[in-house]
Simulated scan of single mutants.
Amino acid sequence: MSGYSIDQAAAQTGTSKHTLRYYEREGLLAPVAKAPNGHRRYTDDDLGWVRFLQLLRATGMPIREMKEFVALTHAGDHTIADRVAVLAHYREALVARMEADRDHLDRLEMKLDYYRGVLQAADAEPEDITRRERASGQPARS
């Protein structure tokens, strides 16, 4: 029997053997075929499912909802509209997180630029910064 051992499947998907067994046990992954010696043998389709489950998990989808999504998939094509709705919901949440992260990054960059400017000014003319601080009565802003 051909296919991938659990070690190979774990390496190819970047997940642990424990997670692969867990996905199968929880019904997220269809029962994996076994070789005559009883060892799991994963197919390319199995690995594709694992990668899709990783994607769902990375969106923040809880295991419970992943199980519901897998059940919709197994129920047939009449559930495609429901699947689209679920994925669209997680897409919207992901886009919102990305926008918030972009805002955080922009604000962090502004602060870094400020501090780098302070360091450059201090390296160039340390006495000028000290004079400005004395004149204002306050240390440089953080």
Rank of each mutant, 00 (worst) to 15 (best):
S2R: 13
G3Y: 06
A9C: 05
T13I: 09
T15Y: 08
S16D: 07
R21L: 06
E24C: 00
E26M: 06
G27K: 00
A35T: 15
N37F: 06
H39W: 11
R40D: 01
T43M: 02
D45L: 09
D46S: 08
L47W: 07
L53T: 03
L56M: 13
R57A: 12
R57D: 04
A58K: 13
T59W: 04
G60D: 02
M66K: 03
M66W: 00
M66N: 00
E68Q: 07
E68S: 09
F69E: 03
V70C: 01
V70S: 01
T73N: 10
A75F: 07
T79H: 10
R83V: 02
H89D: 12
Y90P: 01
E92S: 12
A93C: 07
A96Y: 06
A96G: 08
A96W: 03
A100Q: 14
R102N: 11
R102S: 11
L105Q: 13
R107A: 12
R107N: 14
Y114Q: 12
Y115L: 15
Y115V: 12
V118M: 10
A122M: 11
T130F: 05
R131T: 06
R131N: 05
R131F: 03
R131V: 00
R131H: 04
G137Q: 06
G137V: 08
A140N: 04
S142K: 10
